[in-house]
Amino acid sequence: MNRRRLRRTSLYIPGTNPGMLANAEVYGADSVILDLEDGVPVSEKDAARILVRNALQHIPYRRAEVTVRVNALSTPFGRDDFREIIPLAPDAVRLPKCESADDVREADAMMTEIELENGIEPGTVGIIAITESARGGRNLSEIAAESPRLIALNYGAEDYTADIGAVRTKEGRELDDIRAKVIVAARIAGVQALDSVFGDVNDLDGLYAEALRVRLLGFDGKSVIHPRQIPVVHRAFTPSDQEVGFARRVMAAFREASSRGAGVIALDGRMIDAPVVARAEKILALAEAAGCLPGER
């Protein structure tokens, strides 16, 4: 489980399609989501569970983080999903319909039990919590703090807006509130904040604008539903030359101050504190992932 790994894009792959499961990571997403939940019709839940289990067993995923969106434990499918999937130790499960800390606690306990049964170090499999309701939105801080397995918060835009009675629009003002909640809760708990999908796969300009907006809000990444969205989101999550330049100077000042054992770091006459350093590290990581390595600039 790597809390800080890059998760600019998380690509949904329906658990019912063997060809897509085999090629899940080819498209270059940082994380892939093998989906057992809403992408799978109720009549095919068991077939998808078997396919995803076999994919985890046999397909040599190498580059991407591999996660599985299981069904919520409150559904008839959740327990079976955990029983089949956790023994194969994917990087994380994505826990949908997270309403409260209880949901996380229940999942955590069950995961620990299955891990122990299978000789897996408890805590190996991470949790990415997905909030999809007003109640879940209200409880985000508790959800984020409940388990050391928790690596990121995510929300489901469609279900959430339906629950609060908002209308989905292209500009997405109806999501301002939940986005703010996710960011704040994630930062308090020290986990990542991941934005929801952009539904129109043909509107790549709209996707870029939204992805850029959420990066500037503080999100660490965004879910995608089609491979063609991946390079667009990655582009939006590529820092500008100015950002990279500033981050490099911050890090240089930080290293210089550390070597001197100085407690206070200053750059251009301004004080540089820990959050600024953390942000600079994040920007350099994004730049490196985008192929614009600081050294090559």
């Binding site: 090629n23 080819v26 498209y27 089609h226 491979p227 063609r228």
Partner: peptide, 8 residues
């Protein structure tokens, strides 16, 4: 084609 694999 719009097949993402072929496009790659």
């Amino acid at each position: 084609t719009r097949d993402p694999l072929r496009l790659i």
